[in-house]
């Protein structure tokens, strides 16, 4: 789906946990998430912490959409 959307001209930030899969399938802008069942917030942590993580990683994805890249790129996350 990422590739079809990108083919249509939309930059796509792929937020996923299985980064190697995303790479091998051919996503261009990849932002790692923390797990499969809860990509953007670990339920064993307080809601405030989950929010911080989610807000940060979505922010990275938005920056990725605004970043011109020459090759497939995994955007680093801090939280």
């Amino acid at each position: 789906m990422v590739k079809e959307l990108e083919k249509a001209g939309f930059p796509v930030a792929h937020m996923c946990n299985l980064v190697p899969v995303s790479q091998s399938v051919g996503a261009n802008r990849i932002v790692p998430t923390i797990s499969i069942p809860y990509p953007l917030g670990d339920p064993s942590t307080p809601p405030a912490e989950q929010w911080k993580l989610r807000y940060h990683r979505v922010g990275v994805a938005l920056e990725a959409l605004a970043t011109n890249i020459e090759q497939q790129t995994i955007f680093p996350v801090r939280i």
């Binding site: 249509a8 939309f10 996923c16 946990n17 990509p39």
Partner: peptide
């Protein structure tokens, strides 16, 4: 199937002037 579904979604995005997409996978 994934390709087809994305192709079906695209016209809706185009119609609203969407310029970028965040796609989340689990």
């Amino acid at each position: 199937e994934a390709r087809r579904m994305a192709q079906e979604i695209i016209p809706h995005l185009v119609a609203d002037g969407v310029t970028a997409v965040i796609l989340g996978s689990t």
